[in-house]
Design a protein around this nucleic acid. Structure first.
Length: 241
DNA sequence: CCCTGATTCGC
DNA sequence: GCGAATCAGG
């Protein structure tokens, strides 16, 4: 399995969204957690708080007390409830699938679609290989253990595979696949919901978000006694169920 | 033990 | 460049 542009892009997005290397590896399929980490580093992606790196304190000069240090605000940073990837797309179904789409990795699509669906209305760009996003609960990830995955013993779908159909609500919105280095990755809505999408505005250069959302994600670090108790609203409020 | 990311180093 | 092996903290 090689690092195609799509896979690299997915890696970047998920890494920046706060997914763990394991989750990313599982979502991409065909790569190990180590491979994801190695690739992320080679790409120069910024390290997220590592359990093993106590953070190298700058031994150089500490006198700069003039400006308030900018830190990522954990409250507003949309790091935790990132889009949870769908089950691993079963990279190489070794069992000869009869007459499947040849070129691309096929999305796992157990939902049987009948043919008369009209998908032409959605101008949303679709990559067949991209894992479908799914999530559970407020801020919770879906971790799928190997045991609960689709048994590979049923790899021969009797029906033709149809690319996952994005919901009508997502039409025209910025989806995961639309993300790149230039557009705001601030999530709107909740992963797994039909209209979950991203801000999509032009980024504040050097940041993953637009100027407005940078204002949410990055806040001046105040002295402790002046801090407000952080409102736990990572994504604009708990999911209503 | 499990998890995590970082790093190394042979390929 | 890639990723398994290894390390080390939680």
């Amino acid at each position: 399995m090689s690092w195609t542009d799509e896979r690299i892009d997915a890696l970047k997005t998920m890494w920046e969204a706060g997914q763990t290397a394991s989750q990313i590896a599982e979502a991409l399929g065909g790569v190990s957690r180590n491979a994801v980490i190695g690739k992320a580093h080679r790409l120069g992606l910024q390290s997220r708080p590592s359990p093993v790196k106590p953070n190298e304190a700058a031994p150089l000069d500490i006198p700069a007390e003039a400006e308030p240090e900018i830190v990522a605000a954990p409250v507003a940073a949309p790091a935790s409830p990132a889009p949870a990837p769908a089950p691993a797309p079963a990279p190489e179904p070794v069992t000869a699938a009869p007459a499947m789409a040849a070129e691309d990795d096929t999305v796992e699509n157990e939902a049987d679609e009948d043919e008369d669906e009209d998908v032409a209305a959605a101008p949303v760009r679709r990559e067949p290989q991209q894992p479908v996003l799914r999530s559970v609960g407020p801020g919770g990830f879906v971790r799928q253990s190997p045991g609960e995955q689709q048994p590979p013993s049923t790899p021969a779908p009797p029906r033709r595979l149809v690319p996952a159909k994005p919901s009508p609500e997502i039409a025209g919105k910025t989806t995961l696949l639309d993300l790149n280095d230039r557009i705001c990755k601030w999530p709107l809505g909740h992963p797994g919901e039909p209209d979950f999408h991203f801000c999509g505005d032009k980024v504040n250069p050097g940041f993953p978000y637009c100027v407005a959302h940078c204002g949410h994600a990055y806040q001046a670090q105040l002295p402790r006694r002046d801090r407000r108790p952080p409102p736990p609203l990572p994504f604009g409020g708990p999911r209503v169920r």
